[in-house]
């Protein structure tokens, strides 16, 4: 069963004719070719597919695309600061918070959501905000530092 939806992704509007079973993650990767949003657990347990849906962080694997009709979506590809990286991305690069990188786009989006809500989050708040983003490589320390740095509060 298919339906038409309108979706704005990273500022571009799309009219899509979709099987109702498709998740937002399916659509981003397969229909729109936005491969920066990663599929790992496909069950909301790992956060690799985190995007901002109407400004809120969500695991896009747990969102039906048809339920997003009229929504605004921001993915890692939509984060640009002029020619350069977004401050969160830049900080992750500089602190060594990236190893295999598979969790990174989701981690970036969670951090962007946090900093959008709170300019100067405490370390505990950062840890809580990233708790839904699993990383198997870094032990998180450098990622937490990166978020602090991006918040202008590097220790």
């Amino acid at each position: 069963m298919k339906q038409v939806i309108h979706l704005t992704v990273n500022g571009d509007s799309h009219e899509l004719y979709l099987d109702t079973r498709r998740t937002l993650l399916d659509v981003l990767r397969n229909e729109l070719g936005l491969m920066g949003t990663h599929r790992s657990c496909d069950a909301g347990d790992c956060g690799a597919c985190t995007v901002l849906l109407n400004d809120l962080p969500v695991t896009s694997c747990l969102v039906l695309a048809v339920a997003c009709d009229g929504a605004q979506v921001l993915t890692v590809e939509g984060l640009r600061c002029g020619d350069g990286l977004h401050p969160v991305q830049q900080a992750l690069v500089e602190t060594g918070g990236i190893q295999c990188g598979f969790c990174t786009p989701g981690m970036v989006m969670s951090a962007v959501a946090l900093l959008g809500e709170k300019r100067r989050p405490s370390e505990a708040e950062i840890r809580a905000a990233l708790a839904g983003n699993l990383c198997r490589c870094t032990g998180y320390g450098k990622i937490i530092q990166a978020v602090q740095r991006a918040a202008g509060e590097a220790t």
Binding site: G47, A113, A128
Partner: peptide
Amino acid sequence: ASWMASEQVRSL
């Protein structure tokens, strides 16, 4: 509520 699941899941 603040302890449940994750930020992403709590949005949904």
